[in-house]
Amino acid sequence: MSLTDKAIARIRRMIRDGELLPGSKLPPEQQLAAELGLSRNLMREAVKALVVARVLEIRRGDGTYVTSLAPGLLLEGLGGAVELLQGDTVLELTEVRRLFEPAATALAATRITDEDLAEVARHLAAMRDARDDIELLTRHDAAFHQAVVRATGNETLATLLEHISGRTLRARVWRGLADADAAGRTITEHQAILDALVARDPNLAQAAALLHINTTERWLRDHLAEGAEFPAAAGPRPDPSAPDSPAITDRPSPTEERGA
């Protein structure tokens, strides 16, 4: 471990042990360096690294602060890491999604509010209207699932699934473009998920979500096994006319709605 890594670890330990609380201001650089037995150069390098990791933030003219340490902030880098995965990882990510999202949908069924249901239903209605436009349909498909996961009230779970699901978007667009019947089946499967959520039935919600994700995974697995080439650059185009429904690209931002 380098000296800089040791300095980073010591600051992280201070945060973990409660010596530095979320939102608190760090002591002046010289004082903190002396307290930790570090040189000022090492302290600067450690602070820079923790700023990149969204653990610290520098406020010009004010000082360095611990961030909110919220899951959505600290896990933001996960999306970039997932994006850089090499090889045939889309199937692995789809498997991870299959393991997590049905359980999240079941949890949502026990916590979802009428307002949440209205948002989910709005995206399903938009999917029906866009059934002849695969890219637009997929964007609302993604927003549908993100709304469901957000209804769990579990920010950590929502953030993890957001980044994992975002990497599988191109596969779902590919299926929609290649399979003429995909749009109709997808809408039917989403209706089943919504019906289970309306009924507040966690078992039914989990089963409906599992069936839906399995359908996409099976299609993808079969086509890759047949030698089909996964498209290197395919994804829904931005829809500037819908500012409340963020665009999905090959690399969705952490604030974009994802799922599907």
Rank of each mutant, 00 (worst) to 15 (best):
T159K: 05
V198E: 11
L197E: 08
R200A: 13
H140L: 03
V148Q: 00
L136F: 03
G184S: 09
L161K: 10
T138E: 15
W174C: 11
R172L: 00
L136C: 05
G176M: 05
I134V: 14
Q146M: 06
I164V: 15
L136E: 10
E162Q: 13
Q191V: 11
G184Q: 13
E189K: 04
A183H: 05
Q191H: 02
A192I: 07
Q146H: 13
T188C: 03
L160A: 14
A158E: 15
A142N: 07
R167Y: 15
S165M: 14
R131I: 01
T188G: 06
T152L: 07
I164A: 15
G153N: 10
A182I: 06
A196G: 07
I164R: 11
L137K: 03
G166Q: 15
A182K: 01
V173C: 13
R139G: 11
N154E: 13
D132N: 15
G184E: 15
G176C: 08
E135K: 01
T156P: 00
L137Q: 12
A171I: 01
D141H: 13
R150L: 12
I164H: 12
R185F: 02
A180M: 01
A196R: 00
R131E: 11
H145W: 05
E155A: 15
H140T: 01
T188A: 15
A183Y: 07
R167I: 07
R139K: 13
R200Q: 15
T138I: 14
G176H: 07
A196M: 08
D201T: 09
D195Q: 12
H145P: 08
T138H: 09
Q191W: 06
L136V: 10
I193R: 06
A143V: 04
A147L: 02
E155I: 09
A192T: 05
R150I: 00
R131A: 00
R139E: 04
A158L: 02
D195I: 10
D181E: 14
I134G: 05
L169I: 15
D141N: 05
A199G: 08
R175K: 12
I134K: 07
V148R: 05
T186R: 04
R131G: 04
T168K: 10
A178H: 06
R175A: 10
D179G: 07
D141T: 02
L177P: 01
E162H: 14
T188S: 09
T188H: 10
T186K: 00
A171N: 12
E162G: 13
D201P: 00
T168L: 08
L136N: 09
T152Y: 11
D179M: 11
R131P: 00
H190S: 06
A142E: 02
I193F: 07
L157E: 09
R150W: 08
R150N: 11
G166I: 05
A178V: 02
T159D: 04
R172M: 07
R170I: 08
E135H: 10
I164N: 12
D132P: 01
D201L: 00
H140Q: 04
D195Y: 03
T159S: 14
L157C: 06
T156F: 13
I193K: 00
R185Y: 01
F144C: 02
L136M: 08
A196C: 10
A178L: 11
L197I: 09
R167C: 11
A171Y: 06
T152I: 14
H190I: 03
D132V: 02
A171D: 04
V149E: 00
